[in-house]
Amino acid sequence: MKSIVKLTKPIAWMGVVGVLIMSCSQALQVSYDYDSSVNLKQFKTFKVEAEHKTEQDPLLGSDLNRRRLGDAVVEVMEAKGYKLDNQSPEIVVRFMTDVKDRQQVRSNNMYSPYMWWYGGGNNISTYNYQESRFILNIYQSSNDKMIWQGWASGKVKAPTKREDRDTMVKNTMADILRTFPQATLDTYSRK
């Protein structure tokens, strides 16, 4: 009996810690696509700007969030070994955000052999929510051709503290750019 209690305690604690970690994380799905004909490892310099071709969401695309997104992308790209060059970059990282209204339909089937007696049936409920998307498009600056695209989408609960917002945006950009290759070693050569 004591051995079962000793075994059950750590498992229970791991379950509690797992639930806490899951409840603190954002529910964002991250994905990417790229042009397989382009060697993404050849680039060393970049610049960051907001996407030109689309309207930004008034809240997520505000000037405050645009600066926050731009700073986060610069920080993540530099951590990957790329050098910021606003004059003649090899790639341009453009970002955009949007929010879509979504609806989730839930069904609770209550059919049973006794439904004629208890009056069972099918209960349907709807849940309305907003889905946010953070999109990074990377263009080759020599021909303005998109060579890589990454995005994160899902329900985002806006943090109340500025530090938390900065951290959330930086972590989201790092998650999106996780699959973008590191800069090659000769990026670190001195000029």
Rank of each mutant, 00 (worst) to 15 (best):
M1Y: 11
S3P: 07
V5D: 03
G18C: 03
G18T: 02
G18E: 00
L20V: 11
L20Y: 01
M22D: 01
S25D: 02
L28P: 03
L28D: 01
L28E: 00
L28W: 01
S31I: 03
Y34M: 14
Y34L: 14
D35L: 08
S36A: 14
S37I: 04
N39W: 01
F43E: 04
F43S: 06
F43K: 04
V48D: 06
E51N: 07
P58E: 07
L59E: 11
L60V: 08
G61W: 01
R66N: 12
L69V: 11
A72Q: 09
V74R: 12
V74P: 08
V76P: 04
M77A: 07
A79Y: 00
K83Q: 14
K83F: 12
L84Y: 12
P89H: 03
F95E: 06
M96E: 08
T97S: 13
D98W: 10
R102H: 12
Q104G: 10
N109V: 07
Y111C: 12
Y111N: 13
P113D: 10
P113T: 07
P113H: 10
Y114E: 01
N123V: 14
T126Q: 12
Y127M: 13
N128Q: 13
Y129P: 08
E131V: 09
E131T: 09
Q140Y: 02
K145T: 08
W151C: 03
S153I: 08
K157S: 09
R162Q: 04
D164I: 07
D164Y: 05
D166S: 12
T167A: 04
N171Y: 01
T172V: 08
D175G: 10
D175C: 04
L177P: 10
F180H: 03
Q182P: 05
D186R: 01
T187G: 13
Y188T: 10
S189Q: 05
